[in-house]
Amino acid sequence: MNKEYLEQWLNVSESVNVQMPNEIFEDLSKAEFKSFNHKCFAYAYYYLICYIYRNALYGGKTDQYSQQNIINVFTSDKSSVSYITKSKGILDSMNYTKTTTDYPVSYYMDDGVLEFGLIKELRMKIPELEMNHSPRFFVKEPLKATARFDREDYTGTFYSFQNTHKLDVEDFIKIISDKRLGHVGLYIYGYISMMCDKYNNKFQITNAQLGDFVGCSERTMKKYTQRLEELNLVESTRIIYDKKQLDKVYSII
């Protein structure tokens, strides 16, 4: 999907950015994915369902946000990643998502606390309300966004930014719509963003070490970080000691 379509589809001008839990990288590394690309897809997919849920985009043209359309943002082969996104798939089993037919059609603040107006509540009040989607329509509720610690309500990333990293939706679109980056580029950018938050926007590391941490080769890491720098999303400098270039220091622009 191209950049202009994604901006309109995600209602960028009127929407709120979301935070991602820092533990997602460690949690995804423990799951059994068929490839590194699929692990990156899971990260990007989770970001997108968090964003759509938080902004209650289902309250408009609901069918636009079907699981098929969401997955199509990242891959044309839905079947290859169905083991990740299906009911009781990897993300459900990790307690990152829950498959549900109850979805938010609005959001509001109640005494400073974010609340959602859910479709089932609305249909109880207006029984004659017509569905604007297929009877088989379902969504993925992002569980880490609502209940993160001890599964208590209002402890998720929608409510507490503790130990999280932010991805602006404009950066998400720029990365996802770039043919040389896609969901792999987003995963790498997200990891660098998290580490830059921890180290005052100066994350010192070699590409080989960075590749080890995220699960790819040094060559792959070099290719993607170079492209992120070309798009002015990341910048790096080299530390020089005794006339030798050593680690890179990454910063988020």
Rank of each mutant, 00 (worst) to 15 (best):
L167C: 01
Q8E: 14
T85F: 00
I84W: 00
K30M: 05
K222P: 00
S251N: 01
D63G: 10
Y191A: 07
Y53F: 15
L186K: 03
Q204W: 04
Y191S: 04
S79M: 07
S134G: 11
E152R: 14
V169H: 06
K34A: 05
E32R: 08
S134Q: 12
S217N: 07
T85Q: 00
Q67I: 10
N201D: 05
E230W: 01
P135H: 08
L91Y: 04
K39N: 06
I252R: 04
L122K: 15
D168G: 07
T157R: 01
L233D: 11
Y103A: 09
I126N: 15
L186T: 10
V184C: 15
K244P: 00
S93F: 02
L246R: 15
N200C: 06
Q67F: 04
D27K: 15
Q8T: 13
Q64P: 00
P142M: 01
L129M: 15
M194G: 09
L122W: 12
K34F: 01
S80A: 15
P127A: 00
E7T: 12
C40H: 00
K174V: 08
L48V: 13
N11Y: 05
T220A: 11
T62S: 14
C216E: 10
V184S: 14
V249G: 03
E141C: 11
C196N: 02
D178L: 06
D171S: 11
S134C: 15
G185D: 07
Y199R: 13
G215E: 07
N69W: 04
D77C: 08
E235A: 10
T220I: 09
Y159W: 11
F41E: 02
Q204N: 09
S106R: 13
M195Q: 14
N201I: 00
P142D: 00
F116V: 08
T225I: 13
D150Q: 14
Y43S: 01
Y58N: 10
M124Y: 12
D77I: 14
I24E: 05
T85Y: 01
Y46T: 06
K223V: 07
E32G: 03
L231P: 02
Y47A: 01
K198V: 03
S15H: 02
I240K: 04
P135E: 14
E14R: 12
I90E: 04
Y107F: 15
L129G: 01
L91P: 05
